[in-house]
Design a protein around this nucleic acid. Structure first.
Length: 637
RNA sequence: GCCGCUGUGGCUUAGAGGUAGAGCGGCUGACUCGUAAUCAGCAGGUCGUGGGUUCAAAUCCCACCAGCGGCUCCA
């Protein structure tokens, strides 16, 4: 889509003379030359795209001119229609309307002139030649308050409690609903979510905590060498990312899906890709190579759909399930980006079940809901999330009992938005929303019931009658983005911190699970032996071998959020119990090595393990970020 | 993209027209230490970038870049 383009020239004078009409419906105009002295000439072409909202474009147009007029300190403005700047021109009617609108706005404060529209004109101009005298600008159609999503797309709103009971609400009276008689964290979170969805966030929020944490814990960082919203990962962050991916991979395999991988760039000339791009309004990164244009992958579908389209499968294979870790790029507006919550480059783990009929699809939808629940509970932690649903009203009514039963089984209160008719490819979808420390909500997983794309992309299976039938597709983004998932994990820690608990990562995701602190250098060797024993049993352990006081080593272990810290000295060497400092409680307990192992194993049962991402000896590690003074909450004394 | 706030060594920051200061971290040395900072010395800064005003700019002005908040949008 092209934007309206203008060329601004600060001139000593402009002289023009209409010669003859260039188009049939050119505007009527007086004859003869006209000369305007000391003025800002604005050559203007209006693009087709601008017709969407001529009012808004006119306003933005006038605003932009005014800005420049102020800078060059001129009092006279000449609007000069100049079609040659354009690439996909608007209709003359629309263009003239925008010019006239802008003229009316500008007239209030400036001497405003306009050259006739639709004429061949002779003109002479004398540019002043100072640095600001020649400028070009593009005027955007500032997106008019979207009526989609929050507004008219949805006409009915329903809340469902954890027992599967429905409460119909409206935008105005949702606060008075009976559902709020239910007490507990889940309902408080549902309340925040509904408020965010229906009213937006009223209060100004603080800087999200996860941004501070992601850097202090040396997990992820901004990368100024890249585009904004593209992050670099440090070893500890990467470990967490890999563990999360491994966990979801286990679930996907158990579910019965096979793993595939598709490319990152796609031809924009391809039919399938074109169809999909259409739904992603200009949010894509484009690259030109030779004569071809490519688009960076913005979702998993551009890879997965063509892939499945070419597979050969029949009713005997159904449902067919596939999953992928898709690196995605979306050029989100700058102002929307926020730490890891919203980025331009992210990894999405996406799973699709291709089903033969509605019953099969409902079955898979249900299974995937439980799969996502498993993810949320292990990663975001229990009761720290709620469900949002979107549905086409007729679909919801027809399958209401099934949905309510599902909500009851999941045991998570829900907020449902109904639309009168289908506007997207799905008839029903849910969103697993994590509620953050600052009151914002982040969508992590989603399951979607898609009755459109099987036919649209010709993804079919061979039926018993040897004919082809389109699949119903169940989409399931287990992690809409790993980056955002990490954001929620850290925000969860921030909630704990707010509640005067020590912020922590889940044990299975902690880069170091046990830190050994020798009392003096002479015990380093012994520490290494102990570390070997933990390591052999699949525990990430390291040794603070620096020549520092025990106090300092403890302090360091705490600032790194290490869950278990062992001080090692003469007593331990003699074979006594280890004194284990638990970050979670701040208490020290005497335990044998086997019991420590058992404790960790019981807390990480069924969850993936990967080895320590850095040297076991702390003294050997580079400083990736380096922390400064501790914030007050982290120091205990 | 628009509006608002912010930008000083790796981190946290002092400084408000007149020679950039500190703490943490790093390095060197001493201390060999029992659960949140042992001591001393050293190195490290084109004050986000580019223009402008001024005898003189981290400080004032303009533009750009980046971060956060809001609008909007979304995985």
């Amino acid at each position: 889509m092209f934007k309206m383009k203008i060329l601004l020239i600060h001139s000593d004078f402009l002289e023009f003379e209409p010669k003859r009409k260039a188009i049939k419906n050119a505007e009527e105009w007086r004859k003869g030359r006209e000369k305007i002295n000391d003025c800002l000439v604005v050559f203007t072409s209006v693009e087709k795209n601008d017709e969407k909202d001529t009012e808004q474009v006119s306003k933005n147009f006038a605003k932009e001119i005014e800005k420049v007029a102020k800078e060059v300190k001129t009092n006279s403005i000449v609007l000069y229609p100049y079609a040659h700047l354009g690439r996909d021109l608007a209709s003359p009617d629309a263009a003239l309307k925008i010019l006239k609108n802008a003229e009316n706005i500008l007239k209030k404060r400036y001497k405003t002139y306009r050259a006739p529209f639709g004429w061949y004109k002779a003109f002479t101009i004398k540019c002043k030649g100072h640095p600001l005298s020649e400028l070009s600008r593009e005027i955007g159609v500032e997106k008019p308050a979207k009526e989609r999503k929050k507004g008219s797309e949805f006409h009915k709103f329903i809340l469902i409690d954890a027992n599967g009971r429905e409460y119909v609400i409206t935008k105005k009276d949702w606060k008075k609903s009976e559902i709020w008689k239910n007490k507990g964290q889940q309902y408080e979170m549902l309340n925040k979510f509904v408020r965010n969805e229906l009213e937006g966030n009223p209060e100004e929020r603080d800087k999200p905590k996860h941004i501070e944490y992601m850097r202090k814990l040396e997990l992820v960082d901004y990368c100024p060498e890249s585009d904004i919203g593209n992050f670099k990962w440090y070893p500890k962050g990467l470990l967490i990312k890999d563990l999360i991916l491994a966990f979801q991979e286990n679930l996907a395999r158990n579910y019965g899906a096979f793993k595939i991988q598709n490319p990152i760039i796609y031809r924009t000339s391809d039919q399938n890709i074109r169809k999909l791009i259409g739904e992603f309004h200009e949010k894509d990164y484009r690259i030109r190579e030779e004569k071809e244009e490519f688009v960076l992958r913005f979702a998993s579908d551009p890879g997965a759909f063509p892939f499945m389209q070419k597979l050969n499968f029949s009713y005997k294979n159904m449902p067919v399930k596939e999953y992928e870790e898709a690196i995605c790029f979306r050029k989100e507006q700058k102002g929307e980006l926020c730490g890891l919550r919203r980025v331009r480059n992210f990894t999405m783990t996406d799973l699709h079940a291709f089903c033969a009929d509605e019953n099969q699809a409902k079955d898979e939808f249900r299974k995937l809901c439980f799969l996502c629940q498993d993810l949320m509970n292990n990663i975001i932690s229990k009761r720290r999330w709620v469900l949002g649903w979107e549905a086409v009203e007729s679909f919801y009514e027809e399958h209401k009992k099934w949905v309510l039963d599902l909500v009851k089984e999941l045991g998570v209160p829900s907020f449902v938005k109904l639309m009168p008719k289908r506007s997207h490819y799905y008839s029903l979808k849910n969103e697993y929303q994590s509620i953050e420390a600052d009151g914002a909500n982040s969508q992590i997983s989603t399951v979607q019931f898609d009755v459109v794309n099987g036919e649209r992309f010709n993804i079919t299976y061979r039926g018993e009658d040897n004919k082809n039938y389109p699949c119903i597709i169940i989409h399931c983004s287990t992690f809409g983005s790993i980056e955002r998932t990490l954001c929620s994990i850290l925000e969860n820690a921030a909630i704990d911190e707010k509640n005067k608990k020590n912020p922590m990562l889940p044990l299975w995701l902690s880069p170091t699970q046990i830190r050994l602190c020798p009392v003096s250098d002479s015990y380093i060797e012994f520490c290494e032996k102990i570390a070997d024993q933990f390591e052999e049993r699949g525990i990430r352990v390291d040794v603070d071998d620096r020549t520092e006081s025990v106090q300092k080593k403890i302090m360091n272990a705490e600032t790194e959020w290490i869950p278990l810290t062992l001080v090692i000295g003469e007593k331990e060497k003699r074979g006594e119990k280890f004194s284990v400092r638990f970050r979670e409680t701040g208490k020290i307990e005497k335990m044998f090595l086997d019991d420590i192992v058992k404790y960790i194993k019981s807390k990480t049962a069924g969850l993936p393990y990967k080895p320590l991402p850095l040297d076991r000896l702390v003294s050997k590690r580079p400083v990736f970020v380096g922390w400064g003074k501790l914030s007050q909450s982290e120091g205990s004394s």
